[in-house]
Computed example of a mutant assay.
Amino acid sequence: MLPFLRSDLDLIRAYKAHPGSNTSQPVASTIDRLDTNESPYNLPSELKQKLAWTYQEVIESNRYPDAGHEELKAKIAEYVNESANTNITGANISVGNGSDEIIRSILIATCVGNEGSILVANPTFGVYAIFAQTLGIPVISLERSPLNFEMDLAAAQLAITQTQSPPIRVVFVVHPNSPTGNALTTNELAWLQSLPAHILVVVDEAYFEFSQNTVVNQLAQRPNWLILRTFSKAFRLAAHRVGYAIAHPAVISALEKIRLPYNLPTFSIAAALVALQHRQLLLNVIPQLLAERVKLTHNLAQHPALQVWESAANFIYLQLKTKSSCTEELLNLVNEQLKAKGTIVRHISGGLRITVGSPDENQRTLDRLEAALSLLTPISF
């Protein structure tokens, strides 16, 4: 450890966005990247041509980007209002370099300096805890039910009551959750609604376009709620890193104080505006992806070794039915076999998370997973 680095950095693991890209085995020349829940479809060529023209004729590369994002915020607000009976404006929006930047800004605005800790229910999106740790913020972690991945609300309430030094300032939930795919239940929503005003409730709706289930209509009555969304999934702009927060103007004002100046490149802003302008074109593949999700879930569930969970997102989470001391080793073997054939999925939290891909990718997933499982001895299950 270098003497000028924080001593606790040895205890923090870096978030690996593409863990499947590191493999000790040869990987097929054609790779199905089904590990990060991206859309399997690129931008349509006509939109790429439009962006190319914008870069050539409109964007001045020698000038800084739009620092205020006013046009983009207004267009995002217009889109958000289509998803619920709300009156969101640009004052309710903050835009970040992916949702990750906004998560970090939330932590800085609420908990840094021993002001607060955060509560998460695992398994869930690992960035919340990792970013908190990098900022020296305590993380209170609860385990979800292994039966349905619901939060243990009694344990969560006890944590809220007992954690005082520092107190819990932020509760992070994903709706639907990653990696498990389950949406917030009525009881979970009721508990979140019961939390006092000094606790910020962050509802990450990264997969809203697939679930069509949002809590954005809660914001008018709950200034201590914030919703995260992204252009990286359904809008096919993962390479451009555009995320946004929807919240009370006072919360947005705090985030605006903290975010880095010129945090979004001009080309990313242009791409997000084009995507919103042509959202019907981009989102019209979602019914097909949902149909593929149903087909993939049904076919995987036929395998006697697999427990496959229903998902409200664009991915599927599965586990081995029989749990043993070597379950993780078996999952790792399956994962390595898939990688060797060219299918990259996410081995996480005692299971495999598989992005729903194109029909061809999904068929290869089924074939390769069947082959990988056949290599394991029957006694393994």
Score class of each variant (00 low, 15 high):
His175Ser: 10
Arg241Tyr: 11
Lys75His: 09
Ile316Gly: 06
Ala109Glu: 13
Asp100Arg: 15
Arg346Ile: 02
Pro65Thr: 11
Leu189Ile: 13
Thr297Asn: 10
Ala77Gln: 04
Asn182His: 15
Ala245His: 04
Leu184Cys: 10
Val95Cys: 05
Asn314Ile: 07
Ser165Trp: 05
Val170Ile: 13
Ala254Tyr: 01
Val171Cys: 12
Leu237Ser: 03
Asp32Glu: 12
Leu366Asn: 02
Thr30Glu: 13
Tyr15Ala: 00
Arg353Trp: 03
Ala154Trp: 02
Ser21Asp: 12
Glu71Phe: 07
Ile354Asn: 07
Leu189Asn: 02
Ser83Glu: 14
Tyr244Asn: 00
Ser178Glu: 11
Phe4Thr: 12
Val171Tyr: 07
Ala239Cys: 03
Ala91Leu: 13
Pro196Val: 01
Tyr207Gly: 00
Pro196Ser: 11
Gln280Ser: 14
Lys233Tyr: 11
Pro223Cys: 03
Leu226Arg: 08
Leu300Phe: 01
Leu5Tyr: 13
Val334Cys: 09
Ala234Val: 09
Thr377Ser: 15
Pro167Cys: 03
Asp32Cys: 14
Gly96Asp: 01
Trp191Ile: 04
Pro166Phe: 05
Thr297Arg: 14
Leu34Thr: 09
His278Gln: 08
Ser374Lys: 12
Glu292Cys: 07
Phe131Asp: 10
Ala129Thr: 00
Ala247Phe: 00
Pro166Ser: 07
Glu60Trp: 04
Phe231Gln: 04
Ser61Cys: 11
Ile168His: 04
